[in-house]
């Protein structure tokens, strides 16, 4: 089983013990390694032809490589901050562009998340990570973990959303009204509303979204 640990906040070190121990990582994110490593690009995120077509259609493309070997491999991407998430059979939803590395024990797929993605310009879908093992998420600035519980729903700016897990319902909240079209928009016209029980990862930065301009 691959061992994930953080070196500082921006470098992920994964120790592989050989013998078919593998992880999937964002293509090109390896910065250094020791020991013996083999890198293999996985076409279509390693989800087969069907996964590849789905990803292409949904806009959740990710280029992933499979890392196999023995030793320690270091991953980093544009000095993004990294958070580790340990999964024991739960499901984690994450933006494909925020996923750095997953354990071989996790499988990834594409899931429909409703209208949220529309404001984000990267489709209506997120990547679902499921299984047992660790996953590493990237965020611009250290991610803030926010708990959603009954009676305390959370609203998140689509541009700051990174990932969520748990039993959450999400809905799309819009404050667009006639003022928006008169150039008096509030700039916070779209939010994703999370209700239920779970955790949401938010980054202290916003991607450019269509909604952000309204």
């Amino acid at each position: 089983m691959a061992q994930f640990r953080l070196h500082g906040t921006k470098v992920l070190a994964v120790t592989l013990s050989g013998g078919g121990d593998t992880v999937k990582a964002k293509n090109g994110s390896m910065v250094a390694y020791d020991g013996q490593m083999a890198f293999k690009k996985m076409t279509g995120g390693g989800e087969g032809i069907r996964g590849m077509v789905t990803r292409r259609l949904t806009g959740e493309q990710m280029t992933v490589m499979e890392v196999k070997g023995q030793g320690t491999c270091f991953f980093a991407d544009r000095a993004s901050d990294i958070s580790l998430v340990r999964l024991n059979g739960e499901k984690l939803h994450v933006e494909a562009s925020n996923l750095l590395c997953t354990d071989a024990g996790l499988h990834t797929g594409t899931s429909f998340t409703g209208l949220r993605g529309a404001t984000q310009g990267n489709g209506l879908f997120t990547t679902a990570v499921e299984g047992t093992g660790e996953a590493a998420l990237m965020s611009a600035g250290p991610a803030v973990l926010l708990r959603v519980s009954q009676g305390a729903p959370l609203q998140v700016d689509p541009g700051a959303y990174v990932a969520h897990q748990g039993n959450l319902r999400q809905s799309f909240q819009s404050g667009v009204n006639f003022r928006t079209f008169m150039g008096e928009g509030s700039g916070e016209a779209f939010q994703i509303r999370f209700e239920g029980d779970g955790l949401v990862y938010v980054q202290p930065s916003e991607r450019n979204t269509v909604g952000g301009e309204l």
Binding site: L154, Q155, V156, D157, R179, E184, E188, P204, E206
Partner: peptide, 17 residues
């Protein structure tokens, strides 16, 4: 505009004007 990343509670955003 655009500096809010998340909120709990009941908050409305109004454009100035």
């Amino acid at each position: 505009k655009g500096k809010m990343i998340a909120y709990y509670g009941q908050i409305d955003f109004h454009g100035i004007g």
